[in-house]
């Protein structure tokens, strides 16, 4: 069993949990993910690793309640346990293997959207610990949904916050901030964008124009997470790749985002139905429009 040693509600419907998982904490690197199950009947839910403490043997995860599974997960309390917690899965970020000196000469821009700030954080932190200051853009719909601002500030070179509604920081989408920074004369050798699929798509369209190589981290539907099921297949540069073993990070300019977004909706009806059912309990009378 994997004990939750800390739980915080970062903002409405976004939770942070620090979980005991010694083997994962010992071996994980930035860019990798875990799969959790909250009880013996639960779904296998993939989540990116937000932070890790090798001494304490803990992993920090951040998740937003989107479906029935994550809603139940949000009800777990400190001291309670996950039934299953497996990882690290996927490949570490490419820069982890890069020569530190050549890495130091690069100007890196991270672009995080929404909960995407969570997987971006350990990457920026890893670089910070090696004396590399990367610029970070964090985008959020509105001020109240912004997460990990202070944590990010502590490890980023320059931190740019932008909100869609202008309620905090800059106003507009992350793509606007990228444009502004480039217009201000900033140059980047590489961009790492993590967030909703639609955000990554538009960041990639822009950075392709700007000639900035861009890495994205995909979060498609998965079952086992070890390469066995092929549910997470994505098309990259015309070839079929499995996000769980070949990724989750890919060359964003080569990813077929339209297909990836379409595939994400595969079980949406069922997921939405279950979420509504869970939320409404006994009062649920077909509000989802899909009940038989």
């Amino acid at each position: 069993m994997y004990k939750i040693v800390k739980k915080t509600e970062l903002t409405t419907n976004i939770y942070l949990m620090e979980v005991e998982a010694k083997r994962v904490a010992k071996s994980c690197e930035p860019g990798q993910f875990v799969i959790v199950r909250m009880d013996s009947e639960g779904e296998r839910i993939p989540l990116t690793i937000c932070d890790y403490d090798r001494q304490k043997g803990t992993i920090t995860i951040v998740f937003q309640t989107v479906g029935a599974g994550t809603m139940l997960m949000a009800q777990l309390k400190e001291g309670e346990c996950f039934h299953d917690f497996v990882g690290p899965l996927g490949c570490p970020s490419e820069f982890v293997k890069e020569d530190i000196e050549s890495l130091k000469s690069k100007k890196i821009l991270f672009v995080a959207g929404g909960v995407g700030a969570a997987p971006v954080y350990p990457q920026v932190k890893w670089l910070h610990e090696r004396g590399i200051a990367a610029d970070v853009i964090v985008g959020s719909k509105t001020k109240d949904l912004l997460i990990l601002e202070r944590e990010m500030e502590a490890v980023a070179g320059n931190l740019y916050i932008t909100t869609d509604d202008g309620s905090y920081g800059r106003s507009g989408m992350v793509t606007q901030t990228i444009k502004d920074l480039v217009a201000e004369g900033r140059q980047y050798d590489v961009c790492v964008a993590i967030g909703p699929m639609i955000m990554m798509k538009f960041v990639c369209l822009l950075t392709k124009d700007l000639n900035i190589p861009t890495v994205v981290s995909l979060n498609p539907i998965m079952v086992d997470g070890t390469g066995m099921c092929g549910a997470c297949r994505v098309t990259v540069d015309g070839k079929v790749k499995f996000a769980c073993v070949d990724g989750p990070e890919f060359d964003g300019h080569a990813v077929n985002f339209d297909e990836a977004m379409r595939r994400q909706t595969m079980y949406k009806t069922k997921e939405g139905r279950d979420a509504l059912k869970a939320a409404e309990g006994d009062t649920h009378h077909g509000g989802c429009g899909h009940c038989e």
């Binding site: 086992d224 099921c229 092929g230 549910a231």
Partner: peptide
């Protein structure tokens, strides 16, 4: 068309 919605590997279908 193999990545269309509704195409599964037998492994995925059976594992589910």
């Amino acid at each position: 068309g193999e990545n269309s919605n509704g195409v599964f590997s037998a492994n995925e279908y059976l594992t589910r």
